[in-house]
């Protein structure tokens, strides 16, 4: 059973702020979807998981420098910039 506490914990993991009403709604949605996912319990354990579709290995790149982005392109999208730095939120509460 998914509890409200679970929903809040998941929202924190995902860094998405949710309101009181949303907690209830998501709880119901999650419950029904996760119930549906439980069908996976029927699958046997001794099957190899497929992480990849194509059997590729060793795709590499040479250690050769290519041009970086011009700084105007970098600083065009962030909302807050200062002296060439991108301003971010503070890290202490």
């Amino acid at each position: 059973m998914i509890t409200e506490k679970d929903v809040l914990h998941i929202a924190d993991l995902a860094k998405i702020e949710i309101s009181e009403e949303e907690v209830q709604k998501f709880k119901e949605d999650f419950q029904s979807i996760l119930d549906y996912f439980n069908i996976l319990d029927e699958v046997e354990e001794n099957v190899e998981p497929s992480f990849q579709v194509l059997p590729l290995t060793n795709v590499f790149r040479k250690d050769e420098v290519k041009e970086s982005l011009p700084r105007e392109d970098v600083l065009r999208n962030p909302k807050h910039v200062e002296d060439g730095y991108i301003k971010g939120p503070r890290v202490v509460e």
Binding site: A11, D12, K15, I16, E17, H80, K87, G88, P89, R90, V91, V92, E93
Partner: peptide, 9 residues
């Protein structure tokens, strides 16, 4: 800009 957890969320 706020504290980072609040800002991101």
């Amino acid at each position: 800009l706020d504290s980072w957890t609040r800002y991101f969320s």
